[in-house]
């Protein structure tokens, strides 16, 4: 049977028929992302958290505490979105570190031996998926919370109001930024536990803890920490932010360039 199959094989494909391309790598990463059960589970968790927690909190805000204003309204509504960024970051890390822990990185890199295009493709595909998913989630959660806030001092806010659309898009931008940062961290550390620990410890918790320190310079620096730089974008009234809107975008860019620069250098230099 095998021998027959052998002789039936078509002659060699002429050279040039198959080519490693950027589009091919994107499609490959797309296939890889959706062919793992963990992707579906983690994204489902993120969606449930983002929408569910937002609705739960919005539905249970006490009306006698004097909460009012668009920023406070969005803060309650988007609490779930902010928290679900952990799921998004963890999945982003796993898209890279999962390849190292299972050894599939060897297959990946032998198909794309220049390596860097793999990193860019992973970031582009995952970033696009997260952007699409959270554009839907952020707006869905906003409208849901507004329905729940209807008739209270937190209700009556429209997407057309000054700064509201910007703040909602700011949440999307933050999630995408953290997803991209997570992929770079995974590519630098190559280990799931280490990367997730680093993300939660250094990106999420450290800047918060640092504000408790007695030195003034610490509070001058913490707004520039990688986990804090998107904060201004989340505000309806951005003048309340510690950074300006432009500064916020600039520093998100700076941290991504630093993280991906390091990841790229290490990816090129290290053995797979």
């Amino acid at each position: 049977m095998t021998a027959a199959a052998m002789t039936d094989r078509p002659a060699y494909a002429p050279k040039g028929e198959y080519r490693l391309t950027g589009a091919g790598l994107l499609r490959s990463e797309w296939t890889k992302l959706w062919s793992l059960r963990s992707t579906w589970i983690v994204l489902l968790c993120a969606v449930v958290f983002a929408g569910g927690l937002g609705a739960l909190i919005s539905g249970s805000v006490p009306t006698d505490q004097g909460f009012s204003g668009a920023d406070m309204s969005l803060g309650f509504a988007m609490a779930g979105v902010s928290l679900s960024s952990v799921f998004i970051a963890v999945l982003g890390i796993l898209t890279v570190t999962g390849e190292y822990s299972t050894g599939s990185i060897r297959s990946t890199m032998s198909a794309a031996p220049r390596r860097l295009s793999v990193l860019w493709s992973k970031a582009a595909v995952y970033g696009a998926v997260v952007a699409a998913l959270f554009t839907v989630m952020v707006f869905a959660t906003f409208f849901l919370s507004q329905a729940l806030f209807d008739g209270t001092a937190l209700g009556g806010i429209s997407v057309g109001d000054d700064g509201v659309l910007g703040a909602l898009l700011g949440y999307v931008a933050m999630i995408v930024y953290l997803a991209l940062l997570a992929i770079a961290i995974g590519a630098i550390l190559r280990n799931s536990a280490g990367s997730i620990g680093f993300y939660i410890g250094v990106i999420m918790i450290l800047p918060e803890l640092a504000t408790l320190l007695p030195w003034n310079w610490v509070s001058d620096v913490t707004p520039y920490a990688p986990g804090n730089v998107p904060n201004t974008l989340l505000l309806v009234d951005t003048s309340q932010g510690t950074l300006g809107v432009g500064e916020s975008w600039l520093w998100m860019g700076v941290w991504l360039v630093v993280a991906y620069g390091l990841a790229a250098v290490l990816l090129k230099r290290r053995d797979v």
């Binding site: 490693l20 391309t21 091919g24 790598l25 490959s28 890889k32 297959s107 990946t108």
Partner: peptide
């Protein structure tokens, strides 16, 4: 797994 690798090269 095979499909993901195949797609890199079309």
């Amino acid at each position: 797994h095979l499909l993901a690798l195949a797609r890199t090269h079309g």
